[in-house]
């Protein structure tokens, strides 16, 4: 099979790979992503990252949340989404800091602070991707049990880190109010 490379495709470096079990899955996913304005490129994954087939879709890894959601919505199967370099797993360590009536949960570069008594999200800080101000507006001053998960509305790795903080915060709030 021959894949024609355009100049644009050849220059694109996104730092992330969507891995598949079959070539057909990779081609179908690439088509869906491209139709939805993602910059993508069909590539051969390095041997250590291969999951079943020797074709992967390179993406901008920062857009992992949006890519993952779109592929699931379109019922496009994939094995995994990984960065090309470095640790393969998202940071899963969270830190918790208590203030008088508030609790701040920190995951990576994202922090979510909520009122321990009411569960109202008081602030979201940190991060830098453009969905964070949007998530900030849609979540702050609302009760943590009443808002959508950041990973369901965000597009980026910052949104996934905020999601980690959110899940932990929700668990803490539920434990403290039970």
């Amino acid at each position: 099979m021959i894949f024609k490379r355009t100049k644009k495709q050849a220059r694109f470096v996104g730092g992330g790979l969507v891995l598949f079990q079959s070539v057909e899955e990779a081609i179908a996913a690439e088509k869906v992503l491209r139709a939805n304005n993602y910059d993508v490129k069909l590539v051969a994954p390095p041997p250590q990252l291969r999951k079943g087939c020797d074709l992967a879709v390179e993406i901008n890894i920062v857009e992992k949340a949006g890519v993952e959601r779109l592929l699931r919505q379109k019922d496009k199967h994939f094995a995994e989404i990984l960065p090309v370099k470095g640790v393969g797993e998202l940071l899963d360590v969270v830190k918790v800091k208590y203030f008088a009536d508030a609790c701040m949960v920190k995951a990576g570069n994202m922090k979510l602070t909520f009122d321990k008594n009411t569960g109202v999200i008081l602030n979201i800080s940190g991060g830098g991707c453009p969905d964070i101000p949007y998530l900030h507006l849609s979540m702050v001053d609302k009760k943590i049990t009443d808002v959508a998960r950041p990973k369901d509305k965000g597009h980026t790795l910052c949104a996934l880190m905020l999601d980690r903080a959110f899940v932990e915060a929700l668990e803490i709030f539920r434990k403290e109010t039970n």
């Binding site: 890894i61 640790v87 940071l91 920190k106």
Partner: peptide, 26 residues
């Protein structure tokens, strides 16, 4: 940067703070 972003700058391979090494985040 803030401290977590400083950890990201210190990680040679991370291309986003979500992928920094655990030992650096600690």
């Amino acid at each position: 940067p803030d401290l977590s972003e400083m950890e990201f700058l210190a990680d040679a391979e991370a291309i986003h703070p979500a992928y920094i090494s655990h030992h650096l985040f600690r």
